[in-house]
């Protein structure tokens, strides 16, 4: 009996020690973006859209400027030192010439996918339910 109890306690202790490392590594893994998780979308109707950043930028080698942009006099002057947070500019509602965040994502992603005949285009293909 005693033996059994000890085993359980041992397991719990190990779990408690390992857990922080798992959590921390997961947090650092944010570096490799997998989803468009933006805090401004408070009441989401659909799950966050799938977006493997590495797949686009590294494996497919798509030019950053295809997506990242800051326009000055009609020219995209974005460089890596600049702000990369989409929702820093695009808010929930369209603002002047600036599209709403959702519209910006939809246009950016879908138009390209359609043009290149590659990648998801329907609602459910991007906004996948957690499996």
């Amino acid at each position: 009996m005693n033996n059994n109890n000890n085993k359980i306690i041992l397991c719990l202790v190990i779990a408690a020690c390992v857990a922080p490392f798992i959590i921390i590594s997961a947090a650092f893994a944010q570096d490799d973006i997998q989803q468009l998780q933006h805090d401004i979308f408070v009441d989401r109707e659909r799950p966050a859209a799938v977006f493997p950043h590495a797949l686009h930028a590294d494996e497919l080698g798509i030019d950053c400027l295809e997506c990242h942009h800051i326009y000055k006099d009609g020219e995209n002057v974005w460089d890596e030192s600049e702000l990369s947070d989409c929702t820093g500019c695009h808010s929930l509602k369209a603002d002047g010439k600036k599209m709403s965040a959702m519209r910006a994502f939809h246009t950016n992603c879908k138009d390209c996918h359609l043009k290149e005949n590659k990648g998801p285009v329907t609602c459910g293909e991007c906004h996948t339910k957690k499996k």
Partner: peptide, 9 residues
């Protein structure tokens, strides 16, 4: 389509 049953596209 909404529940992503079968091929979504």
């Amino acid at each position: 389509a909404y529940h992503q049953i079968f091929d979504n596209q």
